[in-house]
Amino acid sequence: MRALRMLGSSVGNKLLLGLTGLALFGFLLFHLFGNLLGFLGPEIYNEHAHALISNPLIIPAEFGILAIFLTHIYKAVVNYWKNRAARPVAYGVKKWAGGPSRKSVGSTTMIWTGLSVLIFVAIHLKLFKYGPVYFEAGTGVRDLYRLLIDDFRRPGIVAGYVLAMFLLGLHLRHGISSSIQSLGLMPESWTARILRAGIVLAILIAGLFAVIPVAVYFGAIR
């Protein structure tokens, strides 16, 4: 009982944010793996998607991810309002401290990049998961590859996806290393490496996600 109450404190809030954030980071890595299969052609891409969709565990897994996602959002919004209330009067002059500070555009815009990703996810699900259903001729396997090609030939969608991935990258730039610090798993001798790895991973993940729509648009995937 006390443990549950403790999760509601400022530190408990951040523990949950860090934990759910890391879980979502894991999901992103898995999703990226599936996307990159697009470079290997329609058969492998659709086969991977089919293996996921036809797995009986997909429904519980989806609910699990939804629960993690909602917890992350709920805790982030609660956090944001409490933090705003903690400084009701703004400074006339305020500067970034510089030096060892980890403050970045990413760290100061977490709530906004996060909410942008939420809007993106809704549009993304509408376009793909709940988008038009095509089937591969003869096999009965859903042809998501065709949907991929159809959608990413439209410049508006490509531009939107690239922008969304830029915002996701900004979110991850602070989020990955910050979640490790929130969980108290940042040993001093590893701090610099974890901070650097967080930035590299953010660029890599956002970049690779963004490459796919661009590749389709310019005909590298067709």
């Binding site: 400022s10 809030n13 409490k82 933090n83 401290a97 510089g98 060892p100 403050k103 290393s177 910050s178």
Partner: peptide, 21 residues
């Protein structure tokens, strides 16, 4: 931590502006 929250302080965003100043 409970006393810190009761007093009206915010939560840590792991930016480290505190450490820098």
């Amino acid at each position: 931590v409970a006393a810190m929250d009761d007093a009206g302080f915010g939560s840590c965003s792991n930016e480290g502006e505190c450490e820098a100043v």
